[in-house]
Each structure stands twice: as structure tokens, then as C-alpha cells.
Amino acid sequence: MRALTPAEVLFEGDVPPAVMPPCDHYAGSEKLIRKSLALQAQLGPVFDVTLDCEDGAQVGQEASHAELVASFLGSDEDRFGRVGVRIHDFQNRAWRDDVRIILRAAKKAPAYVTLPKIHSVFDAAEMVAFVEASRCEFGIKHAIPCHLLIETHGALAEVFELAALPGVEALSFGLMDFVSAHNGAIPDTAMRSPGQFDHPLVRRAKLEIAAACHAHGKVASHNVSTEVRDMSVVANDAQRARNEFGYTRMWSIHPDQIQPIVDAFLPRSDEIVAATEILLKAQAAQWGPTRYQDTLHDRASYRYYWSVLRRAKASAQALPEGAETLFSQDK
């Protein structure tokens, strides 16, 4: 009998939850874009680079900035195909032009399109549909996933419906705009640590977003850390986001933040080794219960360890001998 892989047996016909690199680094100007792509080439695909049309474009220069963004997609500097774009929001007349300019001019489609300041499911559905229609119009073969930025009252109220939308790959929390939307009712200390993890309304928002993502197999992406000098603060923010709030990805707004975020979110080498050994034993037992180091395991724990290996592989971490056989049928 052929050895069945985790993807074939652990999700009972469902698509396994999405897995992405653990850091989403934003860059808007040409200088910062080039610097970010050079760093990605150096470190490998452990982080994505998001080219920013929303905050990166000067007023009146939206079209030229979209052309600039398009010029990097599929270029020699786009080494791994892990470059996305953030377009203007639904209320801004430039968002449709952003999509059309980028998809028409780029040598390669972006890895994803981030849609900011979502107010409702209707906004998001229209934007996702426009991205899909545009990629079909321009003959782009594969669908382009969309990431939704949750930073308004309306989006948070409909976050489970937003996470369920076809074509959506991830939800990101926009902390600064969310706090500002409360018009002073939440103090500015909640825009940074430790307040961002302690204020009840902000905690609620983070938890609702993460819960919605995990309910629908989407990636939960945590907000930025505003600290750009003390990287121990960034590392602690990332660890709390991962361990206490269930996020598997986090934004970066400064190159120095990337490595602490990656280190906090990537599986440790000992976790990868244990996951490989547990899953190989499970595979040999045709996915029945097994015992590993005096601990019993079954399909519930197998799914956890499979997520460890998938996250490691998605970020090009070294896998132990034999681990690749677990992916032979994985899509």
C-alpha cells in the first residue's frame, strides 16, 4: 500500500490552512523598495515585500507610482516571487487604476494584493472581484490572492464573513487606524506596547481577527510594531502576537524589524525535528495512534505537527532527512 501523506488524510477533504512567510515588510519609495528586495535576496524567502501604493504614492502621482511598482514585479530583483502590492482603498478613485496599471505592466503578477480600509463585505467583495476580472482580462493564468486590512468598525463587525470570502488569503490588523477610529476613546498608549496587548477593545479586535482567520483557513497577520530602535521590543511584540493571540505573520516597517519577527514566528529546529519524527511514525502506522517519547499522538496532534513542517517549508528552512516524502502529494 502506498504511504499516504498528511495532506491526503488529515483534513478530510478540506483544503489545509494557508501558510505564508512569517513577515510582511512594507516599502513605498523606490529607494526603500530596492533596499528591501536586496535584503530579501540575502535572507531568502523568509519574508514578503509589499510595495505600497496607498502611502507610497504622492497625491497626483498615483498612476506613475503604480507604474514604478509594476516595474519591480518579475524583475531581476524579484528573486523569489514573494512580492505583493498594497493598492488604494475603496473610497479612493485610484484603486481601480492601481490594479489595472500593475497587472497590465508587470512582467509577473504580484504574489498578493492588499486591500486597505475595508468597511464591509460588499466593499471587499467588489474589490476582490475586480482583481479577479482584471487578471483574466490581462491573461494572467493563476488567481491572485487578496489580503484584507481590518482597521474599521465595519470590517471588525463582519470579520468572519470577510474571512470566508473566496479569493481572500489573509486578514491583517491595522492597529493605528483602528485606535484612531475611536476618536480619543482609546488612549494613544494602545498604539504601542505594552498597551496594544492590554487595552480590552484592542485585545478584542486582535482576537476576533485571529479567530476568524483560523475558522476559515486564512492567515492572521499582526499589526506593525512602532519601535524602530530597540529590537527586543519588536521581538517581544512578535512573540506575544504568536503565542498569546494566535497570529502566524506580522508586518514590518523597518528593515531591522524583519529578523526579530522571523525568529519569533519560524519553527525552531528542535520543533522541526520532532514534527518530522512524529509524522514519519504516523505515516508508517497508516495514520493510526502512535507513541513518541512517552507521549501518545493521533490525528489531532498530527495536524499540529504538520503545520510546523508546512511553515518551515514555506520559509525555505532546512528539513530533516525523510521530511520531503511527507510533501510528495501536497499541493
Rank of each mutant, 00 (worst) to 15 (best):
V262N: 11
A57D: 01
A27Q: 08
F47L: 03
D123I: 00
N236E: 14
P116Y: 14
E54L: 09
L32Y: 14
A7S: 13
P21K: 00
I33E: 11
E321C: 07
S180K: 10
G246H: 10
R93N: 13
A143T: 12
R229N: 15
P289V: 04
A164S: 11
G195Y: 02
D48V: 01
V234Q: 08
F11P: 04
A238C: 08
R204D: 11
G167M: 07
M191S: 03
V69Q: 05
H25F: 06
A7P: 02
E54R: 07
A185W: 13
K31Y: 05
P110N: 14
R249G: 03
D237Y: 01
V121F: 00
G84V: 05
E321S: 11
P260E: 14
D55A: 11
A285D: 11
R192V: 04
A111N: 00
A235T: 07
V59Y: 08
L148A: 14
D198Y: 10
I258D: 04
R135K: 06
Q196N: 12
A215G: 06
A124G: 00
V233D: 03
R86H: 14
E137K: 10
R79N: 04
L326C: 07
E208N: 11
A318N: 08
E277D: 15
V202F: 05
T290G: 01
L32E: 15
A170L: 06
D263V: 01
A215W: 15
F130C: 06
M20A: 09
V131K: 04
A41R: 07
Q286W: 09
G81N: 02
D230A: 02
H199W: 10
A109P: 11
E126P: 03
E137H: 14
D330E: 14
S315A: 08
A157E: 14
E244S: 13
F327R: 00
V9N: 04
F90Q: 07
D330F: 07
K108H: 12
M176P: 00
L68Y: 13
P17V: 04
Y247S: 03
V159K: 03
K331R: 15
Y292Q: 01
E67C: 04
V69A: 09
R135C: 05
S193N: 05
R203F: 08
A205H: 06
T248L: 00
A129P: 00
V224A: 09
A170C: 08
P16Q: 05
Y26S: 03
V59Q: 05
M176Y: 15
K331C: 09
S225W: 07
M127D: 00
S71L: 12
E77L: 11
L68V: 13
S29D: 10
A285T: 02
A157Y: 05
R100A: 11
D123N: 09
Q61H: 13
K141F: 06
H153K: 12
V131P: 10
P187N: 07
T290L: 01
F130Q: 03
R192Q: 09
S29V: 04
G84K: 02
E158C: 03
W287A: 02
